[in-house]
Amino acid sequence: MASVNSTKQKKKDKPPIAAVEATAHIAVTDGALIPNRSNARIFNSWRITFLLAALLLVILTIFNPAPFREIFFVTLKGVPVTFQVTVFAIMGSLVLGLLCGLGQVSQTRMWNLLSGVYVELIRGIPLLVQLIFIYYALGRFFQVEGIIAAIIALSICYGAYMGEIFRAGIQAVPKGQMEAAIALGLSRGQALRKVILPQTMKIILPAIGNEFIAMLKDSSLVSVIALRDILRRGREYISRTFLSLETMLIVALIYLIITLVLSRIVAMMEERFKNE
């Protein structure tokens, strides 16, 4: 599970630009590795892992097609579901996270309390428990489809973490920016929209990328509520064939390759923002 931690990451001798410093404060502990110097070498941890995973997958499916190729194509059908759930749940959690993050820094007591309670509540309950609870609750009172329930549940859960990211991002924008904006006669809302949030977005974009990766992995939990994602397809296959180890190996490899590719994209994004 991802979380914002305030401890300063190791910094290299880069110019002390506010945005760069702020990025360093928001380190998400799950998801992509924080890039370090060894990432610049030809053989780095990412390349070795990716190569091993891809190689293993290719060797298994080509030279040992008997169970593995079938397993691969069966579980691969779950990829669209996994992505669908992840993408929509991230969008939902961004909306909730923005509201929650604004609430955390808001001067409106009610809103402030509400988002605080929301964060405390969500962070105190395991994601799997929340997911099952919300699934049944939604099913009983609203009769919604499984995939919608899963998306809503994941959105609510991740919204709290996203809220913390937004809060940290908003607070990472220097206080003088808000002062300068309201001194010009802007309202607090205008200042937020035009001055604070654009700078916040830039600061938290890598963190959101990491949340996306964490979400993709956590979306495997939806398999318990009858959604046919990668993991669910694998478990169904196991119940038919009892090839548990072989199936889970392929499932793990598919997740690993997807998250490795995504983490590379996030790392590149982070690098680009640092250089700006």
Binding site: A19, Q177, A180, A183, Q199
Partner: peptide, 15 residues
């Protein structure tokens, strides 16, 4: 505030 301009020690330009 529209009628009162302010200049800060740390400039506070919108980055």
């Amino acid at each position: 505030r529209e009628e009162v301009g302010m200049v800060f020690q740390s400039f506070n330009l919108f980055a």
